[in-house]
Design a protein around this nucleic acid. Structure first.
Lengths: 152, 152
DNA sequence: ATTTTAAACAGAATAATTTTCTGTAAAAAT
DNA sequence: ATTTTTACAGAAAATTATTCTGTTTAAAAT
């Protein structure tokens, strides 16, 4: 499962654009179609390549507000955590949720149309969870960087 | 640029899998190839569809540590902000950077191999920036959710 | 109200891409 | 030294994307 330099070149290209054709990639790295094809299939099978997705423009879809929620649970037990996790997985506006170290338990990232939507989310969906004790909101004023590209 | 229900169905599918073929999509929404093709092209042209990317398994690539950095700048001026932004854009381990409200100025998300790498990043790359005054690190203990899918 | 125009779609033809197949050369294993 | 495996090239086949032609529908224009 070790990656050689050719694998890395392929991954770097595919991270940028999932619609590069095998021919595109083959040309860029000076190989024929066969090895590129075989390597991509291997990378998919090994799970290095997780999936191919389409990224949409959140603002053009009307999602003009991004916020981080720092959530503290009522109890630090397994059941409480699990209950919270399951609830979060059902909420489409929560695009990231991580259990973290520090003064609070979870860091959430929320993408939502506007402040009114956030008010509703906060009051009617998040704070009402029995597992939630405290919510501290950090509002995103301006996005500097957001990438799915991992360094290879 | 208004999206009808068919556009939304197409976007929902493409968000999940950028490798769905036009035929796949056409079948799933009961249409012929032509309108699906035309609509996808329109959504690309209008920038609703931003790009197609490949998501890789960060752990299989050796990135076993995720952290949030809460950064405070030395001064809240435009030049300081711009200098910081430019520096961040050059750092591949920083996958998210947002200017935020609250007790600090920026929220960063860092993906990196291990604690030693983070130590190096913190001491030699981030804290040395002239714009940076304070860094508070929040370590991710466990990832609950991470998606590129926006609610439509 | 009737014609015109434009928009949305179906189906077929063409072009491009992916996938499979065949074969070769070099490296690794026995 | 022989066999096996791995990595690759090139060609053929299958699938997919793209283009073209034509129909229907609804809106727009006259």
């Amino acid at each position: 499962m070790a990656l050689d330099e050719i694998d890395k070149k392929i991954l770097r290209l595919l991270q940028q654009d999932a619609h590069y054709t095998l021919k595109d990639i083959a040309n860029k790295i000076n190989l024929s179609l066969t090895p590129v094809h075989d390597r991509v299939k291997r990378l998919e099978k090994d799970g290095i390549i997780e999936k191919y997705v389409t990224l949409l423009d959140k603002k053009k879809l009307g999602n003009n507000l991004t916020v981080y929620c720092q959530v503290t649970l009522t109890k630090q037990t397994y059941d409480t955590s699990e209950g919270f996790n399951q609830a979060i997985l059902e909420m489409p506006e929560v695009v990231e949720c991580n259990y973290v170290s520090g003064n609070f338990d979870y860091m959430l990232k929320i993408i939502i149309p506007d402040m009114e939507s956030y008010h509703h989310f906060h009051q009617k969906k998040l704070s009402v969870l029995p597992e939630v004790s405290l919510i501290n909101t950090v509002f995103v004023i301006s996005e500097v960087k957001s990438t799915t590209v991992l360094p290879i």
